[in-house]
């Protein structure tokens, strides 16, 4: 490569500006309806009995349709977490104003872990095994964001 020998006089900046419209599917729609009632719904696999949140129709392991709806949470346990020092904004790393906690939460009754933000506890005090509870938006808006975050239980 010989960048030094060549003076770059033009670069083409090419934005792609378009929108994809997805049907989220009946499972995520039902999940959102549940959140609108401040309930967290999962689905159970008839094959290996795992309870998956957020719900989806197909179990990869069993190649079965998961069709039994189960209410889980609203409390759970932090199984894993990281303390974020940055945000990713369209792929660019930006320093976060304050450090925050991103956790994998095992909701009571669920098998899978739910990625979530945890507020109301300092990043130095958070630990695996900590009990947390879901905090919903008030009023709810029938959207995924209705499940706002988790905070320490009790």
């Amino acid at each position: 490569m010989s960048a030094q020998q060549e003076r770059i006089v033009a670069t083409a900046v090419v934005p792609l500006d378009f929108t994809y419209n997805y049907r989220v599917g009946q499972y995520v729609e039902r999940y959102i309806k549940g959140l609108g009632q401040k309930k967290i719904m999962g689905v159970k696999c008839p094959g290996d009995a795992s309870v998956i949140v957020p719900p989806r129709k197909y179990c990869g392991r069993c190649n079965e349709i998961m069709n039994e709806w189960v209410e889980v949470g609203p409390e759970g346990t932090i199984e894993n977490f990281t303390i974020a020092h940055v945000n990713l904004n369209k792929g660019v790393v930006e320093k976060a104003d304050t450090e925050y906690i991103v956790a994998l939460v095992k909701l009571d009754g669920a098998t899978s872990l739910l990625p979530a933000k945890v507020l109301g506890v300092s990043p130095v005090d958070v630990e695996v095994g900590m009990r947390v509870k879901a905090v919903f938006k008030d009023p709810v808006e029938d959207s995924l964001e209705d499940l706002s975050h988790f905070e320490p239980a009790g």
């Binding site: 995520v28 894993n80 990281t82 940055v86 990625p115 995924l144």
Partner: peptide, 23 residues
């Protein structure tokens, strides 16, 4: 996943990697 994870902005390459390292 465009209809769930991408909507929430919690997971990305770095946060998932950090969780794997912690695991």
């Amino acid at each position: 996943n465009p209809t769930y994870d991408r909507q929430l902005g919690i997971l990305n390459e770095l946060s998932t990697a950090a969780l794997q390292a912690r695991a």
